[in-house]
Design a binder for these strands. Structure first.
Lengths: 154, 154
DNA sequence: CGCTTGCTTGGAGTGCACTCCAGGGTTCTA
DNA sequence: TAGAACCCTGGAGTGCACTCCAAGCAAGCG
């Protein structure tokens, strides 16, 4: 029995609600510019992701142009989320390698996700700390502004 | 009447609880390596901050070595917080310029702080979104792990 | 006094994550 | 079938935020 089928990569495409405007599985071949429209990334960046191993090798048309699938879009969604966490690209490449290597990397992937989760929580806490400082300064400025206003109206 | 005294910079040093191990105002002269210990920044970075205008000109000893004051440390605390928000250095330099320019930049500083606050709130929300995705994947992996375990024990 | 450690400078170098370019082939629309 | 718009490649360039270097002066110690 195989818990995760690497060939269909269900484990790594459960990244959220599906995007709109997708074609049904089966005739899901998107050009690079369509993927640009979906993801907001540039074509340059998409090719670069592929070069550095952050994307699997993308299918090609008979003339060599890239044709992305729904699965590729799902993967890009996940990558987008991981990028938002501030995870370095090198770490995402590592994760992509683990996925490619198959089921036996399960534990390492799990650990990586949990570590990332902790990092995100820590970052949120950090931001809450800066928010407190910001609020203190903002209310200081607001008070100063009120003092200025009453000064002016006198 | 002057709402904010730029010379004492009270407005820009209310950044939080004071650091430990500081000397009392009056004989507060710290070498660059002491400031490194306080802030966690490198000496290179401290000099670079000064060069780009993110720090005011720092006092010098009779031989030309930098002597930081408590006020400088307060400012570095604030810079550290702003840096944690992800604010670009160029924007922090802009803020530093506003402080140097005096009271008439009050409104602009206020706006800048409020914008930063909104950015931080948006960033926290973004991170919460990624956290949701991460949690979904993590629980997926946990379930897969349990399935694997029961498989093994059978 | 010599040695180690610390500080000074301008300018060059680094690592990251893209971003763009030249020079070509392909696909779509009128 | 022509022209516009799109896509391909390897490699070079960009912007940010540091980070380091060389060469020299200064301070503390045995």
């Amino acid at each position: 029995m195989t818990v995760m089928e690497t060939t269909t990569a269900r484990t790594d495409t459960c990244a959220g609600p599906p995007q709109q405007n997708r074609r049904p599985d089966g005739d899901d071949h998107y050009t690079i510019s369509e993927v640009v429209a979906f993801t907001g990334l540039t074509a340059h960046t998409l090719r670069w992701y592929e070069r550095i191993g952050l994307m699997p090798h993308i299918d090609r048309s008979h003339t060599g142009q890239r044709r992305y699938t729904n699965r590729d879009l799902d993967w890009l969604d996940l990558v987008g989320k991981l990028r938002l966490t501030g995870m370095p690209v090198a770490d995402m490449v590592r994760y992509a390698e683990l996925v490619r290597e198959g089921d036996h990397t399960y534990v390492e992937r799990f650990e990586l996700l949990k570590t990332t989760r902790e990092d995100v929580l820590a970052r949120i806490d950090e931001l809450r700390g800066t928010l407190a400082v910001l609020d203190r300064k903002i209310s200081f400025y607001a008070d100063a502004g009120r003092a200025l206003a009453s000064e002016r109206s006198r």
